[in-house]
């Protein structure tokens, strides 16, 4: 590979080293996720005032929006890792892509269910075939397609390559989900939080939302690390380092 990539990055790509690295970081990521999540819940459910139009119903936003962001973010990570896996055949990139899919699917499912629970009191319906909702449902099907394709091959790595290809094609849906509220006339409200320029949301509602967003990011890392570790063990089960781990845990 190109020689501008530092040596430590090459080493991190090696399964036993990444296994140890992920094992050290994972508890910290989980602790940060739980801590930030608890702070965000307190801020969102207790401290933030009721909305002037939606009263307390709007409090679903503190899990709905971070989950929706994660559903798109994880898809992006999965597509980039898939691309790396297809081009450079890096085992670790394959594993990261394939193990991101179930976490992304979980967040997409949460987004759809919480959105439905929010839609019923506010719009008067659980579901409508509107651009934002439909494209988010397509996102869930893409995740499920990637997971299904990965598991439908006898050979793990062949399955990963096919699923990586699907993940890359499906990336087209991510901007569609994001911009659907601007491109089409929909029931779903537009974005209130902006990276560029001021957000259209009061500060005491905004900070719990952003804190929960950080918590879900850390949660993703924690979950990804534990999943990647399991996959690396399974992939390298013939190697000595895995044998040593199996024997050490068997003695306990």
């Amino acid at each position: 590979m190109a020689n501008w990539i530092p040596l430590w990055l090459h080493k991190l790509g090696s399964p036993p080293i990444f296994y140890r690295f992920a094992g050290v970081l994972r508890p910290w990521m989980l602790a940060l996720a739980v801590l930030l999540g608890a702070v965000a819940l307190y801020g969102g459910l207790v401290l933030a005032p009721p909305d002037y139009q939606q009263s307390d119903a709007y409090r679903i936003i503190f899990i709905h929006v971070p989950s929706a962001w994660m559903s798109l973010f994880i898809y992006g990570v999965m597509a980039v890792a898939s691309f790396i896996a297809l081009v450079w055949r890096i085992k670790l990139a394959e594993v990261v892509a394939m193990e991101s899919a179930p976490i992304g699917a979980a967040f997409t499912f949460i987004t759809l269910v919480t959105g439905s629970l929010w839609g019923k009191p506010m719009w008067g319906t659980w579901w409508t075939w509107d651009a934002r909702l439909t494209s988010e449902l397509v996102l869930l099907f893409l995740y499920l397609g990637v997971i299904g394709l990965y598991h439908s091959f006898e050979d793990r790595r062949q399955g990963a390559r096919a699923a990586a290809f699907l993940a890359i094609i499906g990336i087209i849906n991510v901007p569609i989900v994001h911009f659907s509220v601007n491109w089409w006339n929909t029931l779903h409200q537009g974005s209130t939080v902006r990276i560029l320029g001021p957000s259209k949301m009061s500060g005491d509602m905004l900070w719990p939302l952003l804190t929960m967003m950080a918590a879900t990011k850390f949660y993703y890392l924690a979950s990804l690390f534990s999943r990647v570790r399991v996959d690396l063990l399974a992939m390298e089960s013939g190697k000595d380092w895995v044998r040593q781990i199996a024997e050490r845990e068997g003695r306990q």
Partner: peptide, 27 residues
């Protein structure tokens, strides 16, 4: 929750149940 308890608490329950299941599965 200002009369919206039937929507808010199930939403939060789904959030936690799905994430906890996601976290237990790999172990």
């Amino acid at each position: 929750m200002g009369g919206y308890a039937a929507y808010i608490w199930p939403a939060y329950a789904v959030f936690f149940i799905v994430l906890i299941a996601d976290f237990i599965a790999p172990s």
